[in-house]
Amino acid sequence: MMGFLRNLGSVRRGPAAVTMVAAAVFTAAIMIRAYAAAPAGDIPSGNVIQPQELAQALKSAQKPVVLYTGPEEFYAQAHIPGAENIGPAGKPEGMKKLRARAASLSKDMPVVIYCGCCPWDHCPNIRPAFAELKKLGFSKVRVLYLATSLGVDWKDKGFPVASGE
């Protein structure tokens, strides 16, 4: 590292430094713009859990709290066993219910939220739910990755479901 710094210091010509600074500023500007164009509230990869991993976690002694944040009609048909029905977090009543439930949970408790109402990129519920739990200070929130739907990515793959309201 020190050698690298010494080498940098030995660059005596102004144009080299100016070029490098300009390149860095240009690159950073492009990346900042790319981030600004990204959908608001996108979920970092570290906060995403795959179905297989959740299925395993549900068999363990320390199960995460699983919150379903999608349409009630789907929950009644099939849901992950033990999942609590919060309702669509993209709607005010769902968000209110999420906040009420969150108030009774410890902030360091592992929480998994899922929806699967529609393709992942377009789900109107998981992003607001995730953002809200993070805002409330939950440190172990993960979102179940369901690329197409709960039916395709969970039930049809043989993971367990329960039904009823």
Partner: peptide
């Protein structure tokens, strides 16, 4: 210092990208 800052910004930019 300028060069170190520039290199760091470049690295961050590439990583972010």
């Amino acid at each position: 210092i300028i060069l170190v800052i520039a290199a760091a910004a470049l690295a961050i930019g590439v990583y972010a990208g």
